[in-house]
Design a protein around this nucleic acid. Structure first.
Lengths: 330, 330
DNA sequence: GTGAAAGCGCTAACAG
DNA sequence: CTGTTAGCGCTTTCAC
């Protein structure tokens, strides 16, 4: 905030009328005479008055600002969600405060509490990996109890009563796997799994397994497990070198898909051909026809989350929470 | 903001003391007796009082919030800048409001004016392509005249008096091109140019040309121009197919680098080998050793911008603006 | 038509 | 040690 800004009071003083008259004139209230309106408008313009919307928000008790908490903006999935949220909010006259949790409960908690202490009318959250793995939701629960409107997306928690937006992870993984089998004729598909207790990754793996199970007569699969990413990569590399029967890879997340691409790109000889499918939002990969990308419609998720939130805020209702499932496409 | 929240007033009333006593007790002021503090603290906790920092900001006239305006969050360069900004601000107790201009003056103007109407203490801006190309800076200038603290980065404008953070585009392009020539032994380098009147792209091209000029006895270059991206891609494709002497490509921006990679990947036979250099921030590309990436240190840019801004806000000084140049590395 | 006054929740002089 | 008071800039009754 700057010094010497034109305010309602300064206009009122200069024009020798009252503050409330100025206020009404500026908002084009029918109560005010045409003459007066004109004078006020002219003076305001000449002194480039800009209303202090912070004060106005304060007075009205709502800020027209929404808080978004995501784990990582460099992951294009979250970046796209942000775009979806921002676009929808902007179209509806809302602002966006963003916080990046880096998958840490501590930062998440801190920023959530700052935001919800009056700065935002509601929150859109994808909880941190740490919170999900340790099942620590108390910081969210407290807010909810406090009456804050919250929409969760992607990583959700059943015990929290709020609106939610999710991807149908099971179905998406199932479809993509089946596509590998049916349309690409894969006979041996590899999946890398981190066993990291993340709800939606588990669902994806189950979807993959269900598809394999369904077609077990014509396809086999190898599951590589390791606790660390590096280990997974290493094992995958060795497997691909050793076992040339592998003709498909399924990536459970952004990273594993990218890694699979890089690995196969290097190994790929004229004769071999490995198909890759998986969850991936990198823009430029769409050029690569050999890849089956599960498009999570991240922007759509963001838009839906924002929509649910604004509806929730506008209705006083604090019950009947909805969970929206956003379809994927391959 | 919710109903029925515990406030200073409600605590004061319940405990039959004054609001200011409560306020001081809560901020652990030495003026208040231990007894009273204890009572207040206990009551506050029991009724999970959370201070309304929005009101506090309003009273104090500063919001501890910074606004960031970027053209596009899906461009990893800007995403990384955001991370740099957010991290620095968070470490210093500031919040971040983000707005995405989509390279449109209209949206940029609108959001800037909302933000600066009391919501933020200062602004970090990369102006929209539209504003830069049409040289329309009035919306920024107005703010500056108003006394708003602004830091510009990446796309800057000499006539605007404010702090700036930039990449040494000329030098970076020069170095990368020279690297192609000296270390990769390139003899024929192609560059695609859009002639789009963007200051830093022009600088990059000049840097490229200077390096070619310096080594003109051993290297030649082909410049492909077109007004549209598609045209550039098409022409590049044709050239690569036709002229097999091309052994280097220089990409002026994210998109052109990515496209060059995809093109050469497809064309590349065992015998040919085209080196690519350029400005690119995609994370996963670092795995590709054949690529010479100009690392703009985007996080560093964000951090510096945030730092300059906070310093500017804290000092009352409104002169002696600084321009910081962030070094690149290959 | 216009204005006076109250107040959003909090802070910070200034008194006692 | 504790309380009174006066706002921050704006909106909104309610009076005139």
């Amino acid at each position: 905030m700057q010094t010497n800004r034109t305010t309602l009071a300064s206009i009122a003083q200069a024009l020798e009328i009252s503050v409330s008259t100025v206020s009404k004139a500026l908002s084009d209230s029918p109560e005010i005479g045409v003459q007066t309106k004109k004078r006020v408008l002219e003076y305001a313009k000449a002194n480039n008055y800009t209303p202090n919307s912070f004060a106005s928000s304060f007075r009205k008790g709502t800020t027209s600002t929404i808080g978004l908490i995501i784990p990582n903006i460099l992951n294009p999935f979250y970046a796209k969600v942000l775009v979806g949220v921002e676009t929808y909010l902007d179209d509806n006259g809302y602002k966006l405060i963003t916080s990046i949790s880096n998958d840490l409960i501590e930062k998440e908690t801190k920023n959530i509490s700052v935001m919800s202490s009056g700065f935002v009318d509601g929150l859109i959250i994808c909880i941190s990996k740490e919170a999900e793995q340790k099942k620590k939701y108390q910081h969210i629960k407290t807010l909810l109890d406090n009456g804050t409107s919250i929409v969760m997306f992607d990583r959700i928690c059943d015990e929290l009563e709020c609106d939610k937006v999710i991807t149908d992870d099971f179905q998406a993984a199932f479809d993509a796997t089946e596509f590998l089998i049916k349309n690409r004729g894969c006979k041996h598909i590899v999946i890398t799994s981190k066993m990291n207790n993340l709800h939606h990754l588990n669902l994806r793996q189950k979807g993959f397994e269900a598809a394999i199970e369904k077609h077990k007569s014509i396809v086999k699969c190898t599951v590589i497990t390791d606790e660390r990413s590096k280990g997974l990569k290493q094992k995958l590399k060795e497997l691909l070198k050793k076992d040339t029967s592998v003709d498909g890879v399924f990536g459970l997340n952004e990273k594993s898909v990218l890694h699979a691409i890089l690995l196969t790109n290097k190994l790929q000889k004229e004769d071999s051909n490995i198909s890759i499918a998986g969850f991936c939002n990198e823009m430029q990969l769409k050029y690569d026809a050999s890849l089956i990308v599960i498009n999570q419609n991240a922007k759509e998720i963001g838009k839906e989350a924002a929509k649910l939130l604004l509806e929730r805020i506008k209705s006083k209702d604090k019950t009947s929470f909805r969970t929206k499932t956003i379809a994927v496409n391959l």
